[in-house]
Nucleic acid binder design. Structure first.
Lengths: 363, 363
DNA sequence: ATTAGCACTCCAACAAAAAGAGTGCTAAAA
DNA sequence: TTTTAGCACTCTTTTTGTTGGAGTGCTAAT
């Protein structure tokens, strides 16, 4: 017992792992008898009980009430995810499913993320989340205008991350096709690479000067550009497969469920959490490790999608604290590998090796 | 009793209305005693009981069990919505809220619909739905290309409904800025106004011919255009405020709730329903009136957004069958009026009168 | 046609009892 | 010193029974 100060005995590890696995599968507290029957550790249930009592004392297990089985504590899950978990190998079927669905969606990042989170939800049977994080500083790398009618054109902006945004623009004074083309040029010369904060009055005035007689449209457009940039700042989050949560008994309490759904609706908390993360590997947040109040018996696992050193998106899984971490980690890794392939270049998808490291981040 | 064959007596109407109102508010079966105390109809509870028994026989009321109060049947709600409902006037506060939020979102239809459904959910305290219906035939009215790198440009398409879609395009053989500009011209000349089905091989060949030496890119782009058109065909549906459902006791049964959430996740059923609707007024679907299985104790109210005679979107409310129809109808009407203002022209919002007719459509 | 009165039904809530699962502890065995 | 069998104990879950109340339907009188 003294020598266990700095680590768990092999037997304790085996018991803890068995308990976590059993609880992940069944959701019920696990008793010594069950362990006895399902593990070969050549000792009696009484010994197991003793070990369990010690594991509880050490903080890895909890007892829902005086005479129930044991349930893994938050610390127990942490230890499990960090050291005990056995890597889950995706089946060829799953890999094929990923490839097929994502291949069909080669396109804008938004759609890829959405499809991926859907897929993640399907494969893991938990709730999937697709996130475009808030970013401190997006800028626009290219403007284009599309003339429609004398008082009506479309402003298209390509952002530094490659996303394309557009807005209809209506102006008071009629403009010509040539004018809106000149406008695009002017915008490209003065506003590219600037964040919302950097669009200052002098810059606006320069742009207006360049447009000469047609300066009146500039004000309207700048306002729209500004709004566009702030929109991009806001981030976005979409949820898929909420219905899957309901199959887990931890969410059969309506109050709890309502709180959780509320958090998913509000989006802010999770969006913040993901946007602030600096871990580019897989993030695993178990229960109260995250500041999001509601998560107490839930867990959030997410993987940022990084492009040129910048986090441009994330896919995640939300589920009960006792989720099947092995499967979730493998799924998110597989998916993010494929997404990386797609966005870095439109090269052929081949399901190759994307062992994206199994880094975990507690709190 | 004979003369009631073709209509309900005034007293029956009053009783029915009182029962529906009471049940909408409380969610509990309503008894004769309650009616006696809350309505001035100068008769005893025994008489009310008799009337209630007859209303039940006629199919307007139901009894959950032998000795409970009465609950409105589906037919009862239908009758209520069609003839008994009292128009609800939006408060100035609500009108102001609508104007402020929508004003801020002047932009693409998607965003307006999303904001509106959010708002509808907030105002009514039920779940809001924003829908872009499947449409038989979308075409593209204008193409534009944005050159980025020699093997990489962006294709922007403006659809016949004014929506803007874009796709990144990567090509094998390097192209110049001039080439992508010519490509846009070629696409505009050959593909505008065509639906996905109408893009035939001859047309493709003509386009390729026009591009001469750069024909190789045409194939890639056509595939993308095709995908883009089918995407537009698919329709879209976004849900907001699911958490609000949980406050109503009819959704405290996990099984029921799961089915409902499943329907909302799948989107297909509701999307079909809305896409196929030909009623441009407010549609009210109560319980099993819709083919969507799950709705049995739910109701869906939605209002198409029509532009140039075409349904370009819809906003809706999903809630318990006993929802506050008066409020829901008023809210959707108010919102759709404002949306119409915004999309028809960017004229100033003024919260003016949009009495969009109170048409109802039973199954 | 309406109403008072009453017996009847059914549900909901509570209480008590029984069943079960799992533990902790003790004393003996390895 | 560690392990184990055995058993009493605790706490939950399920079952069963009881009671109270709400609301109806019916009958007989108005």
């Amino acid at each position: 017992m003294n020598l266990e100060k700095r680590g768990l005995s092999e037997r304790k590890k085996q018991i803890l792992k068995a308990i976590v696995n059993a609880h992940i599968e069944g959701g019920e507290p696990v008793g010594s008898k069950y362990i006895l029957q399902n593990q070969q550790l050549g000792c009696s249930s009484a010994t197991i009980r003793n070990e369990m009592a010690e594991l509880e004392e050490m903080g890895y297990l909890e007892q829902p009430h005086a005479s129930a089985g044991r349930v893994p504590s938050e610390l127990g899950y942490r230890f499990y995810v960090d050291t005990l978990i056995e890597r889950y190998a995706m089946t060829t079927g799953e890999i094929a499913q990923i490839n097929n669905l994502l291949k069909a969606k080669i396109g804008e990042l938004d759609q890829i993320l959405l499809a991926a989170s859907h897929l993640a939800s399907n494969l893991t049977n938990y709730t999937g989340i697709a996130i475009k994080p808030r970013v401190r500083s997006v800028s626009i790398s290219k403007f284009e205008t599309i003339y429609l009618e004398p008082d009506h054109f479309i402003l298209v902006a390509v952002t530094s991350t490659g996303a394309v945004k557009s807005k209809h623009v209506r102006v008071e004074r009629a403009v010509t096709q040539a004018t809106v083309a000149r406008l695009a040029t002017a915008l490209n010369e003065h506003l590219t690479g600037l964040t919302a904060d950097e669009i200052t009055l002098p810059i606006i005035m320069e742009t207006e000067a360049q447009m000469g007689a047609d300066a009146s449209a500039v004000g309207t457009v700048i306002k729209i550009v500004y709004g566009l940039l702030s929109e991009l700042d806001e981030g976005e989050m979409r949820v898929s497969g909420i219905d899957r949560l309901l199959q887990y008994p931890e969410y059969s309490d309506v109050g709890q469920l309502q709180e959780l759904l509320g958090t998913l609706e509000k989006k802010d908390d999770i969006l913040d959490l993901v946007s602030r993360s600096e871990n580019e590997g897989i993030n695993v947040l178990i229960g109260s490790e995250s500041e999001v109040k509601v998560m107490n018996n839930s867990a959030l696992v997410f993987k940022p999608i990084v492009q040129n050193g910048k986090t441009v998106g994330a896919i995640g899984i939300l589920g009960p604290r006792r989720m099947d971490y092995a499967k979730v980690l493998a799924t998110l890794e597989g998916l993010s590998g494929n997404i990386a392939d797609i966005i870095h270049a439109n090269k052929q998808l081949n399901g190759g090796d994307h062992n994206g490291g199994n880094e975990n981040n507690g709190g």
